[in-house]
Design a protein around this nucleic acid. Structure first.
Lengths: 339, 339
DNA sequence: CTGTTAGCGCCTTCAT
DNA sequence: ATGAAGGCGCTAACAG
């Protein structure tokens, strides 16, 4: 009955620049200039064109425009998993800036080999730039091959010639470990889950550096199974440690869960510090000490850097922006006591 | 020094179909068919073309393709905030399916008026379809005006003629409220934060329905401030309730934090149920009772529905897919006791 | 099954 | 400051 008004011909693709030009009584070239060129067009003419466009509900056809110009106003974002709040916050930061700057983002989740496939997909959409985490040799060469302008977030790489936004993984972990040692802890553990990146390497190095700087009665254990994160149980790997640094919020919650189930009391039996700070951590009893890595700010910086790079014509040298973490000391750490 | 090898002419846009066709010694049309058309091309020819493409490192130019065909292999995703794990999980589910099906997603965060702006932006990229949450009259008419194929997630709308994926907000809240009443609670509260949607309305209705069905000694309080979520304090609004249903994980953690700070003991003084189940809830002491709304599955269903709609030629009637929630009863609920 | 022909909507010289 | 013409890379009719 009401199906009559359904447009059979799906080629109804809305008004084009030609329509706008006709209504504004100018040539297509002039109409085009009204949208892009900011110089060689009379203000009055441009206004007329813009009015006509509004009247018709015209929208620039970005794909068509990209055909000629190459530019497309689209930025690729390749992140491993949005279910990890760390990356979700990065994504949110990126989105904020990109929207402000008039870009849209093609988001693709993937790690390892998928990352390379993602780059390939971006290439097919003629995306000219990408924000990516984490970094690896594979992704770097894929990006280079695709000639993309890239910004790397959270991790960097020795062979990297692009801009990147990182943290202070080495420093912060070393500092925390030192703090725990000062509190009298003799056996520490660092729990890591991600694949090997500059971040995990930095954390491991910082951890070991703190251990090395301490008396030989202090030992540190590095737990970094590169296996399926979902079946990992952390507690058995602690090896009697009385203080532990958890590599991300997921590890922290899993660890706390195990501790509760097995009657391990935090902080009496175990001091805990989380790398990554979330709302629920302050709700916990005891409140969990956590390092805020400021992933949202990282995302913002990454996007800002990328946009600057896209707009800037002068080939400036790559920069590394480092975001200072905030250490929030709360109840989950305590001086060591013999049990 | 090393700047000599920098390509001055940025028009270096890689191999085109024409190059592939030449190498494979076929016409451009045939080469094109090798990628799209699955029927009218000889297997041997297609293989030859594909080989040539691989040899040249050729990638389909989606924007150019869209110029003629209208299709572009891009789906818009408009979600309010990825920092909310509920939406992050939806996004993850969507991404999984879309990648499998060869689509990429343009993700734009936004709520309220921003949603409409997002639709406009998608339109300029000639995206033909969108997955969106939450629903509102404004977004519905924007989608209709842009003639997009849409799937709505989590919420519906009476004026909706598109597909949607929803939950059982009414039923689940009613059931939980009834359960709490059975446990002897006389004063309940439902905490909601989102704007008015079918989901929040359903929850409110389910809540009130359970209260109505109970003896008149039972009262329920609906707390739904549509103000800035970040400065909201929930505890003062509880009005002496001994059992509370928290509308999302963020509310839950904030509430638990306040409870701890003010010496309110869960579940002795306050029974808590969270709408939305996250890892950390089982780590809590007591473990938090929570309803898993399965946002990841919702995302998957939404994407699957959309893809089916895009592929299907027959204009099938819109469907509503409802995802059954899972109620995980844990230690944060207890029978009512006089204090 | 394959080639030919004509644009899709836009931008960019080159004139004027 | 504006118009005319050609082509970006691809696909959809139509022939053959």
């Amino acid at each position: 009955m009401a199906s009559a008004d359904r447009t059979v011909d799906s080629a109804d693709r809305g008004p084009t620049l030609k329509d706008v030009a006709r209504l504004a009584e100018v040539s297509r070239a002039t109409a085009s200039r009204a949208f892009a060129d900011h110089s060689s067009i009379a203000a009055a003419t441009r206004m007329r064109v813009l009015d006509a466009a509004r009247m018709l509900g015209y929208t620039l056809n970005q794909p068509a425009r990209s055909l000629k110009s190459g530019r497309i106003g689209l930025v690729g974002v390749v992140l491993p998993d949005l279910r990890d709040p760390f990356y979700a916050h990065i994504a949110a930061g990126i989105d904020e800036v990109l929207q402000d700057q008039g870009f849209a983002m093609i988001m693709i989740m993937g790690r390892g080999g998928d990352q390379v496939a993602a780059i390939e997909r971006l290439r097919s959409h003629r995306v000219g730039s990408v924000i990516v985490a984490p970094t690896s040799t594979a992704i770097i060469s894929a990006i280079r091959a695709a000639k993309l302008v890239a910004v790397h977030v959270h991790t960097t790489h020795h062979s990297l010639v692009s801009d990147c936004v990182t943290g202070y993984d080495y420093e912060v972990v070393r500092g925390i470990a030192a703090e725990l040692i000062t509190l009298g802890h003799k056996r520490l553990a660092l729990l890591l889950r991600s694949p090997e990146t500059s971040a995990t390497r930095g954390r491991a190095a910082g951890f070991l550096s703190a251990i090395d700087a301490a008396p030989s009665t202090v030992s540190g254990r590095l737990v970094a199974p590169h296996t399926d994160p979902r079946i990992t149980s952390w507690l058995p790997h602690l090896d009697g440690a009385s203080a532990v640094i958890a590599g991300d919020a997921g590890i922290t919650s899993r660890l706390l869960q195990e501790a509760r189930n097995r009657g391990v009391c935090v902080p009496r039996d175990l001091s805990v510090v989380s790398l990554g700070d979330l709302d629920w951590m302050t709700a916990f009893d005891p409140p969990i000490s956590a390092v805020d890595l400021h992933p949202h700010a990282m995302g913002r910086h990454a996007a800002e850097t990328l946009v600057a790079r896209l707009r800037g014509d002068a080939p400036a040298p790559p920069v590394e922006i480092r975001v200072l973490p905030t250490v929030n000391r709360r109840g989950s750490i305590a001086p060591f006591r013999e049990s």
